[in-house]
Write a protein that binds this DNA or RNA. Structure first.
Lengths: 341, 341
DNA sequence: ATAAATTTTTTACGCGCGTAAAATTTAGCT
DNA sequence: AGCTAAATTTTACGCGCGTAAAAAATTTAT
């Protein structure tokens, strides 16, 4: 690790007494050389400080070891968490992940894809913006680069899709709410950013009807990715105008719920399942912050680990040649019972 | 933009009728060629789909256009937000930023620096882990790569330091709390992750003494970067054992405050400045989430824009040869009054 | 021990672009 | 128009490594 610096592979070949092409093979895949050779190289790496020049490496290689990870909004801890998880898995598998965020902006997402193209990645893990995505650009990109879509599906694009089973999410938590109190109203954005929201609304309606209740959907205005503020403002409006027909509110996602909780606080409405509480609020996503709201938020959580593992493994297999037909994998979530509902 | 693909610069030279060396100059810096030539090249770029191969580009260039951005924990929205801000500034200035997170782990921070080395970046914007950083590794890195330290200072390392004026932060908010109610106790981690926390404690003590009050510091156990949980558990302990000598609590940072608010909720302690409230809680940082706590958190906010602008500009100047002596810039924060205090 | 299979070495070329130096063209100015 | 300064073209080499092919060495099997 420490030791005198070596300028290039040729010099390292001389110093270590191993031919350059063999070293090249080693750095490309350590298991591709005989075990005895490998240990000789590793011993030399201890003595000398040498790392291959990544630019020269990637220049002629048909396939780099780069993997791009793209999320719609890195400042959302949910995406930050899943990105971290994916990043670690890529490193563990010997790839070089690079993190990108579309920052909730269509044009930026397209730019990220452009940047990604020039990185010549072996593969890409992409969570699209959703409704705001430039679908043609996505399609063109997927045709060029092996891309696995996660979180938010966009038709049958890319290698496969891995995400959560939104229908199960909403059905499950709706069922819980119905069994433990008044049936819930559904609180959502009128023009949600991604298709998961539509699935959740539909699942809510279907679940309510199957339980013999009348679904009540409250859709509030608001554009963009500032969900908390949309939830807060929408919450104020809904509370003031008594749009909620029952004392239980299921939010389309946790960030909206967080905003609604703030609105409730600001209107002096007590939230929780206690006798002294006026309404119950539940979210969906298992957002990292949901534990720390007041009251702590009852929600149904993504299986972060399973989603990222499934996505990563599917991409690795595709990169390594194990092509399988397009498939959609949707993982179940887990109900997290807290004080808010 | 759209049009037939061109394989390399030579082919693009033929197609556009402009010599390859001139194109090379153009792609390195568009303003370095005559305006008429520039517009001819830009016209050709509209017709043909060509982007220089970044690997070939960076192979021989003494200085790449890469800039590394390193934060200690990307899943903390505060760092995510400042990283986003820096990223945009780099792009606007014609650089290629790459985002890294140390994920709160010393070994990972060292690994990130290793990875960064092989990227041969023109410069790096680095927010160190702080106490957990491997200072020798940081020093060695800074000696090799132009590095601007931000957020959390580590001796006189790198080009310069840009961050917030923690003394001003704490003095200002302590003053506010003293003027509007009982003087605050100070709530912090016993072994904080970064040096800013020490400055804040000291500034609190100094401020209290200068106002003629007795400082009361409550330090709670807890390791790592799960500040909310540390604040919640420590909050329970402090409330149960009546460690707070006044009804006002100034937290070392917002995430700790968020955890404390949850503890208060769980113990049925009403927080706010109303008559019916038992205690007041304030934070420090202007965390993106602080608006949505219940009650919304009174805090003193970093000047995100100014910090990132100052940091970015300082780095750009250094990269472009305008070397100036090491300097520490600490920017003032702005008090944000909300319901919690 | 000998042949066969595998691995390593030798040799050699090319990737796409940066960059230097000299020759040539173009623009700016009186 | 004529001159100078600046920009562009021509020519040519090199960066560090991937990779192919053939020769040599090593390991494994018989």
């Amino acid at each position: 690790m420490a030791g005198e610096k070596v300028r290039n592979m040729e010099e390292f070949a001389r110093m270590s007494g191993i031919s350059r092409p063999t070293l090249s093979k080693f750095f490309n895949d350590p298991t591709s050389v005989r075990a005895s050779t490998r240990s000789r190289i590793e011993a030399a790496l201890e003595q000398f400080d040498y790392r291959p020049n990544i630019y020269a490496m990637n220049q002629n290689r048909k396939l780099t070891k780069n993997i791009g990870i793209v999320v719609p909004l890195l400042s959302d801890p949910y995406f930050a968490e899943i990105a971290r998880n994916l990043e670690q898995r890529c490193i563990a598998a010997g790839y070089r992940p690079t993190l990108f965020s579309s920052h909730g902006d269509t044009a930026l997402e397209v730019e990220v894809l452009q940047t990604l193209r020039s990185l010549k990645p072996a593969g890409v893990l992409l969570a699209p913006l959703g409704r705001a995505s430039d679908n043609k650009a996505l399609e063109a990109f997927c045709a060029e680069v092996p891309t696995l879509i996660f979180d938010s599906s966009v038709e049958e694009i890319g290698l496969s899709f891995v995400g959560s089973d939104n229908v199960q999410f909403t059905t499950h938590i709706t069922d819980y709410l119905c069994r433990t109190g008044e049936p819930p109203c559904f609180f959502e954005m009128k023009t949600p950013a991604n298709p998961n929201a539509h699935r959740r609304r539909q699942a809510y309606i279907a679940a309510m009807e199957s339980f013999g209740h009348t679904p009540e959907v409250v859709s509030v205005e608001g554009e963009g990715w500032g969900f908390e503020e949309i939830g807060r403002l929408g919450g104020h409006e809904a509370l003031t105008n008594k749009w909620f027909s029952t004392n239980t509110i299921l939010c389309s996602n946790d960030r909206l719920a967080i905003g609604l909780l703030t609105a409730c606080y600001e209107q002096g409405v007590r939230v929780g399942r206690g006798q002294d509480c006026a309404i119950r609020v539940a979210g969906q996503d298992g957002h990292p912050h949901s534990r720390y709201t007041c009251p702590p938020l009852t929600t149904i959580s993504h299986n972060y680990d399973a989603v990222s593992q499934t996505a990563a493994i599917a991409l690795f297999l595709a990169i390594e040649g194990q092509l399988s037909p397009w498939k959609s994998t949707r993982l179940e979530g887990q109900l997290i019972l807290r004080d808010s509902a």
